[in-house]
Amino acid sequence: MSPTAFLAAAAAVAVAVFVAATTVGNEYVYFAGYTVLQYIVLATAWNILGGYTGYVNFGSAGFFAIGAYTTVVIYKTLQLPLLVAIPLCGLTTAILGLGMGYLTLRLRGVFFAIATLAMAIVLHTLIVNWPFVGGARGVYIIRPRDVAFFDGYMQFLFAVMLALAVIAVWIARLVERSRLGRGLAAIRDDELAAECAGVPTLKLKLISTTLSGFLMGVAGAPFPYYVTYVDPNGAFNLAYAVNSIAMPLIGGMTSWAGPLIGAILLGTLQQVATVTISSALSLLIVGVLLVLFVTLAPNGLVGLFAALSQRRRHG
């Protein structure tokens, strides 16, 4: 399928999802659906660096929060509409990703992961000590009273996140099938060999961190309008870091479908668990599933399906 056809198909699916959500006639559908969609964007973003390139980023929450706090800053200064703020948030975290790449990409494996975790903690400390964005107390965001074409602001946010999810998955698929994606796969498989084969490894890794950072910021951008009250502990929540790793891992890390499936599955499961049992349990589910998948299906659901269909073909 050509990229344009894929984009059209994805948009069609998104419209169908939106229409289906409106027929439920309950505001909560948008509320829960938004979270799942947000995780699609976040998991897809993480996977560009973690899955395609093989660099595990533990600092997703940092990127997500900086995206959200950029919206807060824009809200308090320029007061631009959300749709204009989103690309600016992405730009901020893209620059953050580029900077992180420059500083940390000489580290590999577990050392890179620790550095990203440390970066998220540094960013958290900075935000806590910045009174302009509310510091440790947090900040309130007042949603516009109504928005054109949509039946309430929550429905609008849902539609925005739906569109962002389509764009994120489309970008990921584009990367995966391009020369860039092949170069990233070479880095993931054997960085030294990639270098010897003439792959410009540093450049590609920087593109990867920048792009991944951009999409993470985009995922966090509408967050202040979603919760209407942003505080550092909420925005830098460990759940974002854990989920953005767990979802691609469960879905499969080498293709765009992996994080999408993982986010839908795990995101929905968490929402259901939050409503029916308790919100504290949702992270426990992630933990249990993660252990199960790492031991039973290390290549995720996509890998599992591929293995099963191959076995069937060979009798």
Binding site: R182, A185, D189, D190, L192, G198
Partner: peptide
Amino acid sequence: AIVPEGRQLFPKLTVEENLLIGAYR
């Protein structure tokens, strides 16, 4: 062009992908 010691291929990529990566220049 370099043919490194111990071959240094990309074991988890296909033969064709390996070849195409050789043409990155």
